[in-house]
Amino acid sequence: MNLWPFVFALFALGIFCLLTRRNLIKILIGLELLSKGATLALIWSGILRNSLSYTQSLAVIAIAIEVMVVAVFLALVYAFHEKSSSLDTDDMRRLKG
């Protein structure tokens, strides 16, 4: 049994979503897919090392952190919507990186 392909598939899909989608909610979904891939990787590494309890506790902490990040991101999305009345990143053209 090998779950690494699934982890990398989730990561690839997340990166694809971040690069091609133009909606902030879609961007959030991309970030979430990355986090889910990382959590799955943590659990799978625990199975490989036969120390599931250890990686489960890491995964629990990682999930808690993930929620905090999502909440801050949604607050930013709200602030963005206040300014532009849209969720479209094509409206983000004032700054040129």
Binding site: L18, L31, S35, A79, R94
Partner: peptide, 21 residues
């Protein structure tokens, strides 16, 4: 600032996921 924050956050959270992997 909001726009800069969103850009920063998207890249940075991606980086964090890579680190966790």
């Amino acid at each position: 600032p909001v726009e800069a924050g969103i850009k920063f956050m998207v890249m940075s959270v991606t980086g964090s996921a890579f680190i966790l992997l």
